Amino acid sequence: MTIYVNARFLTQELTGVQRFAEQVSLALNTQRNDLIFVSPAGVLRKNVAEELNVKIIPGGTGHKWEQVALPSFLRKKGSPLLLNLGSTAPVFYNNKIMTHHDVTYKRYPQSYSRKFRLLYNSLIPLMLRGSKHVITVSEFSKNEIAKVYSFPHEKISVVYNAVGAEFSPAHGVGKENYFLAVSSPNYHKNFHGMIEAFIALNKESNVRLKIIGKASASFSTMDFSEFLSTSDKVEFMGRVDDSQLIELYQNALAFVFPSFYEGFGLPPLEAQACGCPVMSSNQASMPEVLKNSVLYFDPANMDDIKNAMDKMISDTETRNRLINAGYENSKRFSWEESALKVSNLLNSLS
């Protein structure tokens, strides 16, 4: 039986959700020969589309394509099973598996635009109700989805993120004098707390703070001008490509992950794979994903964040221990194993 995969994620900028969908798709494609990947026009990563042999289905783009053109096309094919690895799916097409990473928009609505909140609060309950099964990225998120939407636990499977082989340590490269953070400047990411703690620390240190990433139109962004006016040691770098990102991970003194809420939290795992010691928030999914391989802090406590930063600067033994522990932790995750779990789910439902 042929299974269709919604590859709309290839028309979207590459963030954590799209990376998960892309990497699981690539691994699945090597494990199975019964998948057809379909997408609207406007593919951004054409090399991936070619590898997946993506079929372009006409009928608009974005939500219009996903909600109208895609289900119409599938019904003409006999309503086959549809695998959705992005964060949305056709509402009125029931022979589907959907992926939902987290319910941040419920827990921290101030992080999102009003339009995004209205869309998700309207569509997600309908998408869940019409799904045979749901994939999410951590046990934490599984429990959150079940709790918020009264959705059966047994219909939710956990499929972890992972890190590609290109994320690896650079041997013989010395660490530079900066902390690195990777994310978008939205409230639940807690960059305001991290920057405030860093500025307080930098009265006593010469370490710099480099921040990578930019906000999506779906997010409600925060204004950091007040912080930046008081420090010239904080640098917003915008988006960078993977090769630049890997080099920044490899050379950083340490990685900071201050988030209040994450369904999984891929950047600290990427940092660990590149030999970068990590200090992280102790909330949400982070203890599940990072276990005892990081220096934890309370993200709501500025002094706790500051003390973690200070320890990373002053304690070489702790940094070396976390480099080794982090590298081992990153190896617990594999795109191939995650894809195999999805493949087994497809076999059970198709």
Rank of each mutant, 00 (worst) to 15 (best):
residue 99 T to R: 09
residue 209 L to E: 04
residue 127 M to R: 08
residue 138 S to E: 08
residue 32 R to D: 01
residue 175 K to A: 11
residue 168 S to L: 06
residue 342 V to K: 08
residue 323 I to G: 03
residue 116 F to D: 06
residue 40 P to F: 09
residue 325 A to Y: 15
residue 328 E to K: 13
residue 161 N to Q: 06
residue 217 A to K: 08
residue 343 S to W: 01
residue 53 N to E: 04
residue 44 L to A: 02
residue 248 L to N: 05
residue 199 I to E: 03
residue 335 W to N: 03
residue 201 L to I: 02
residue 132 K to Q: 09
residue 153 H to Q: 07
residue 182 V to G: 03
residue 139 E to S: 02
residue 102 D to F: 08
residue 45 R to T: 09
residue 167 F to R: 02
residue 257 F to N: 14
residue 218 S to Y: 15
residue 199 I to T: 04
residue 298 D to K: 10
residue 49 A to T: 11
residue 200 A to Q: 14
residue 102 D to T: 04
residue 25 S to W: 05
residue 210 K to D: 13
residue 144 E to W: 05
residue 90 P to M: 14
residue 77 K to W: 07
residue 29 N to G: 04
residue 320 N to M: 12
residue 325 A to P: 03
residue 36 I to G: 04
residue 312 M to P: 09
residue 248 L to W: 06
residue 296 Y to R: 10
residue 38 V to Y: 06
residue 297 F to T: 04
residue 31 Q to A: 12
residue 67 Q to D: 10
residue 281 S to L: 05
residue 168 S to T: 13
residue 123 L to Y: 08
residue 295 L to Q: 13
residue 307 N to L: 11
residue 153 H to P: 00
residue 200 A to W: 03
residue 164 G to T: 12
residue 39 S to G: 07
residue 185 P to V: 01
residue 208 R to I: 01
residue 333 F to D: 09
residue 134 V to A: 02
residue 114 R to D: 00
residue 122 S to W: 12
residue 200 A to P: 00
residue 175 K to Y: 03
residue 220 S to A: 15
residue 30 T to E: 14
residue 321 R to E: 12
residue 223 D to S: 14
residue 253 L to N: 10
residue 290 L to N: 05
residue 278 V to P: 00
residue 170 A to C: 12
residue 302 M to L: 12
residue 327 Y to Q: 12
residue 188 H to I: 00
residue 243 S to R: 13
residue 289 V to H: 10
residue 89 A to M: 01
residue 110 Q to L: 10
residue 285 S to T: 08
residue 268 P to N: 12
residue 150 S to V: 07
residue 55 K to P: 00
residue 191 F to L: 09
residue 8 R to T: 06
